[in-house]
Design a protein around this nucleic acid. Structure first.
Lengths: 340, 340
DNA sequence: CTGTTAGCGCATTCAA
DNA sequence: TTGAATGCGCTAACAG
């Protein structure tokens, strides 16, 4: 019975193919008795509409591109998992593409949509090539990052609030001299996290010290570089808030290499809760983003964009969570007081 | 000119659509002059054949499923990158799916191919649900792992040789009591790595000690468990060869927690060279698989399977490399002698 | 409520 | 060597 087509079903049910099609896609437009006969024929033949034919006829593809900033970053795997799961359940397929800091690649994927190789694009890069946002954009959902160039449906965490959460945790432990390693400053995200850091300091009445801020790039080496630079400059601190886990782990390792203990001498907080945040030594205190949920939610938004009414750009905010592990502890002076 | 179709081109070139089609797909079956006119018309219209229509007509999809064992494992990202790159260049799309130890999910993806939602399947799970291999299988390429149930084109490293490489490195550093953490034993891969470990010992005349072998599951916790178990049993060793990096890092952290230094007291070798092998503390000595190359090669094999002659199941072997970092050092006794 | 008709864009018969 | 005709499987407009 495999591969039965709509004609076979129609013949078996004694109706036209149009009726079969309607019975399946718009059940209320078919008389109950007819529908029952059709469904029975469908059941007995094991008929499954040929998606390719459906898409071809409807001039859609059922493909959605998921464009990420750096495909070798494990961060995106859970995202993909969430997107794929929701997509599959709704008959869509996900094509993950790597933007890799490269305008040409982004254009290539936007072109895929314009060329009708895909129906829509979920953008996780945080930027678009110059000029692209001026012309008409394909159905697009922005996730993780914010896009300044265009007003599009967006799902992301509140990076500022999340950063505050992290820094307030440190302040609550008695830390006053808290360093911050930023992400690449071309990302809105990085600015937001830095703003959250500054807000938390201000709210606690802690003076803001520019020399405690290091402009990183989200890579491991940049975490090591930051600690090295602080050391060279003779900048003292008892805690670090890094804008992502990779830099945080780089900082931890460089601190240890310089004879400092974590968390005894310096507390470190990361961001993202990557798989190896838990298995690093010491296990890393960090901010967890609901990656899988963000993935499936972005796909949900995409589907409603493609199928539903062109809703006014919604903004969904995903909740974050502070995960306290062993890389943070009370500030040394405070602890002495506590223990004494 | 966007979206010009074959009719427009035909009209412009003053030929039939059939001739345009032939000029593009079977150039030698068209007179030179005609072909030139057609190509000129194609150029001037910017015509690109509608892939969806082509696929629909040819009853193909242009989709290839990449089925992995655990989609949250960063290992697969580079693989995907390699597959996707080669696929894209050849007009294919890659759908990555998560098998996740679950028969039903594997069946679901095999079904996708049978239902003509995809043309082929690149299998990276190392197993197939019982009975599946008995029936006719869709076009399939096996990568990373070996499959016992069926004889299919395969690309993988020589796991046994690779394991020998790792253990010989330790032996060369003077280690004699070398523990081994295996992967899940239902994977051929795990058996092969263990066999390589045993071969290396045998070749060096080192007695095989069953108590030094711990059956792990590739997870971080299993690396910690192994060291804990050895400790509880009072088993002594100066080196560990773990069948993957996650377990190796787990072992390192548990060793450190028990006051042992790596590599001073115990040397540790991993397998895979994951992104964070380099950024772990100490940086991990490990075996590197050419992940990206394995990805693109598997896609190459898939394409030749789909387009070319049904070649007799080939087996491609990918080369591995020992990456020596700071987690391995000369065995303590040897070093004393060396230094003295 | 249902059937007839038309066609998505292309590749491939079959004739000429 | 080329063109006319056909149809992949399905949905949607239009009648009835």
């Amino acid at each position: 019975m495999r591969g039965a087509n709509i004609r076979k079903v129609a013949e078996l049910a004694g109706v036209s193919t149009a009726t079969v099609s309607r019975a399946l896609t718009q059940p209320d437009r078919v008389a109950e008795a007819t529908r029952a006969r059709v469904l029975e024929a469908v059941r007995s033949t094991g008929f499954v509409p040929n998606r390719q034919a459906v898409n071809f006829r409807r001039q859609t593809t059922g493909n959605v591109v998921l464009l990420v900033r750096d495909i070798s970053n494990p961060f995106y795997l859970d995202i993909y998992g969430g997107v794929e799961e929701h997509a599959f359940a709704n008959g869509y397929r996900v094509l993950m593409g790597d933007a890799g800091d490269d305008d040409a690649r982004v254009r290539r994927y936007v072109e895929m949509v314009r060329n009708r190789q895909a129906d829509g694009l979920i953008l996780m890069t945080g930027w678009l090539p110059k000029g692209l946002a001026d012309g008409p954009l394909p159905p697009m959902v922005v996730a993780l990052e914010q896009l300044q160039e265009a007003n599009l449906p967006t799902i992301a965490i509140d990076n500022r609030k999340a950063a505050r959460l992290a820094v307030e945790h440190l302040i609550g432990l008695g830390h006053q001299r808290i360093a911050h390693l930023t992400g690449p400053m071309r990302l809105v995200m990085s600015h937001e996290r830095q703003a959250g850091y500054l807000e938390a300091l201000a709210a606690a009445g802690i003076e803001r010290r520019p020399e405690l801020i290091f402009n990183g790039n989200f890579h491991y080496s940049s975490g090591r570089d930051a600690v090295a630079a602080f050391g060279a400059a003779g900048v003292g601190f008892t805690a670090i808030f890094a804008a992502n886990d990779e830099m945080a782990i780089g900082a931890v390792n460089e601190l240890r290499a310089r004879g400092q203990r974590v968390p005894d001498d310096v507390s470190v907080v990361g961001f993202d809760d990557l798989v190896y945040a838990e298995s690093s030594d010491p296990p890393l205190t960090t901010i967890r983003q609901p990656r899988r949920a963000i993935g499936s939610e972005s796909m949900r938004m995409m589907i409603s964009l493609l199928q539903g009414s062109p809703s006014p750009a919604d903004r969904v905010e995903a909740a974050v969570e502070l995960i306290v592990r062993a890389s943070t502890a009370r500030a040394a002076t405070t602890r002495r007081r506590t223990h004494g």
